[in-house]
């Protein structure tokens, strides 16, 4: 059993300390995904809280055989963010960021010092090919299926899978 499995078992048993640790591990990532969809810092903060509160309340529905904990909470976050941008109240509000994908958001930061691997990420997003940017944006940030991504990018379904693999490989080489 890995450390994370143990944490997740404690989380399912409603252990707040364990949940806090999971939040430390994934909170920023979840906020990143939400921010990339809603493109508004305040709404992203609000939504991220909601996502984690919801995860806490639904902890008994999570089952590790159905997927990774990170993937589970990522799904909750994407759905909450997509619901948000479709809501009437959101469409009437002014948007702070007009960046069109995660790379623009990362690049628009004046400094990336808050991240220990800022150099790796910076290097990665700078060197990332357009195709990689698109595939990663759709699959991880927007939650497209392989099929939806293949239609969106006008690319065979098998190519999506192999291209995504090679993009994530490049990312791993630079940040891990």
């Amino acid at each position: 059993m890995t450390d994370i499995d143990r944490l997740i078992n404690q989380f399912k048993a409603k252990d707040e300390k364990a949940f806090e640790k999971l939040y430390q591990m994934y909170g920023t990532s979840i906020r990143g995904v939400v921010l990339n969809i809603v493109k508004d810092d305040d709404i992203a903060d609000e939504l991220m809280q909601d996502v984690f509160i919801k995860a806490w309340q639904k902890s008994d529905t999570y089952n590790s055989s159905k997927g990774r904990f990170f993937t589970w909470i990522l799904n909750i976050a994407r759905n909450a963010a997509i619901d948000k941008i479709r809501s009437k109240a959101f469409r009437q509000s002014v948007q702070n960021l007009d960046a069109d994908n995660f790379v623009n958001i990362i690049m628009s930061r004046d400094n990336l010092d808050h991240l220990t691997d800022a150099i790796g990420i910076n290097k990665f997003v700078t060197n990332l090919g357009q195709k990689c940017k698109e595939v990663i944006e759709l699959l991880y940030f927007k939650g497209f299926t392989q099929k939806e991504a293949s239609e969106e990018l006008n690319m065979p379904i098998g190519t999506i899978k192999t291209r995504n693999r090679s993009c994530i490989q490049q990312l791993r080489d630079m940040v891990l």
């Binding site: 990532s29 990143g32 921010l35 992203a44 790796g120 997003v125 940040v175």
Partner: peptide, 8 residues
């Protein structure tokens, strides 16, 4: 996780 965190 690292990539998505870097957006925020």
């Amino acid at each position: 996780v690292k990539l998505t965190a870097s957006v925020s």
